[in-house]
Design a protein around this nucleic acid. Structure first.
Lengths: 106, 106
DNA sequence: TGGCGATTTGGTAAATTAACCAATAAAGAT
DNA sequence: ATCTTTATTGGTTAATTTACCAAATCGCCA
């Protein structure tokens, strides 16, 4: 594959990859409802704060979220809402799989 | 996080994860133009056939592609075309990042 | 200034991923 | 029947990922 083309797919894949972890996916979904601080997300997910912080930095790194420090807290917001489109497609993949299963069981 | 909710995000993330590798993303894009056999994809990507075969099996595992054996060849097709929507969003993330960069450089 | 709460960063260990090669399986041609 | 082509599977290794804990940083207030 041509190096230029390859680089393009790597860049694209990197962005998708940032959404490919359950915790990060959940946080993107949650941020679609409004800004959240690290602490709030930590409580919701139920893992160590440092883990949440690192996940957020992955999302920030690819430009999906933005952060804003206010006092001692850091608030994260969704920078590119179209990532929410992923959800509807993912659901239709799940539905298609379920339909297939049902058809095979007949 | 509630185990039921957690399982849902894991299932969703799994589907997204299958698209998070450059080679798999390229193949999905290519399959959007029509069916392709393993050999064709192998030549286009330029890695070992076994590697391509394994990548395809990942995509098949989550239900994004379907395969059909015809003679000695196996043809793969895109089963859920909406995954192509990912591309447009990914591009807008890339554009947003580029715009941000340009703004900072002013 | 000292301390407290909120967040990030560094470090480590376990698990996962992905590439290649070799071996196997299946289909078709000689 | 054997060889050849096409694809999948098994095995190994290197690289990446992710979780936790501990330590450092930042902002605010007493």
């Amino acid at each position: 594959m041509d190096p230029k083309i390859k680089a393009r797919y790597e860049a694209r894949a990197g962005i998708i990859k940032s959404m490919s972890h359950p915790t990060r996916l959940f946080m993107v979904d949650e941020l679609s409802k409004g800004e959240r601080c690290v602490q709030e997300l930590t409580e919701m997910v139920g893992v160590d704060v440092s883990t949440i912080s690192k996940h957020l930095s992955v999302l920030k790194g690819v430009g999906i979220v933005a952060d804003e420090k206010r006092g001692a807290q850091v608030f994260y917001t969704l920078r590119v809402p179209c990532v929410l489109n992923f959800f509807s497609c993912v659901e239709s993949v799940i539905r298609a799989n379920a339909a297939e299963q049902a058809a095979l069981a007949e």
